[in-house]
C-alpha cells in the first residue's frame, strides 16, 4: 500500500497554512482569528506527522501531541480574553482594542 508522496502533504500543508494566515490577517473578529490560528497549527501538525512517517520515527508524532496541548492552552487563554471583552461590552473587533497599543 503506497499512498501519496510527501510532496503532496507539504503542498496541502502550505495551502492550509496560507488559508489560516489569510484568516488571521483579513478577519477582525477575534473568535475567527483564533479559529484561523488553529488551522495554521494543524498545518504544522500535518507536516510533523508526514515527516515522522517519512523517516520512520515516532518523534514527530510526539511533537504533534505537544503542539495539540499548547493549542488547547492557547484556546483557553484566548477565549478567556474574548469573554472578558464580551463582559465589558466591547465590540468583538480587534481593530477597536486601541488601548492595547504600546
Amino acid at each position: 500500500m503506497r499512498g501519496p508522496d510527501i510532496q503532496w502533504y507539504v503542498i496541502l500543508a502550505a495551502l492550509l497554512f496560507a488559508t489560516g494566515a489569510l484568516g488571521v490577517m483579513l478577519r477582525r473578529n477575534p473568535l475567527i482569528i483564533l479559529l484561523s490560528i488553529e488551522i495554521m497549527l494543524n498545518a504544522g501538525n500535518l507536516l510533523l506527522i508526514a515527516f515522522a512517517r517519512l523517516h520512520g520515527q515516532e518523534d514527530g508524532q510526539i511533537f504533534a501531541i505537544s503542539v495539540m496541548a499548547v493549542a488547547a492552552s492557547e484556546v483557553v487563554v484566548g477565549l478567556g480574553l474574548i469573554v472578558a471583552m464580551g463582559r465589558r461590552h466591547v465590540d468583538l473587533d480587534v481593530d477597536k482594542l486601541r488601548t492595547l497599543r504600546g
Partner: peptide, 18 residues
C-alpha cells in the same frame, strides 16, 4: 490524513481533544 500516515494515536487525540 493522520490515519493515512499511520499516526493512529494522534488521529484519535485529534478527534477527542480538538
Amino acid at each position: 490524513l493522520f490515519l493515512l500516515l499511520s499516526g493512529e494515536f494522534v488521529a484519535a487525540g485529534q478527534v477527542l481533544v480538538y
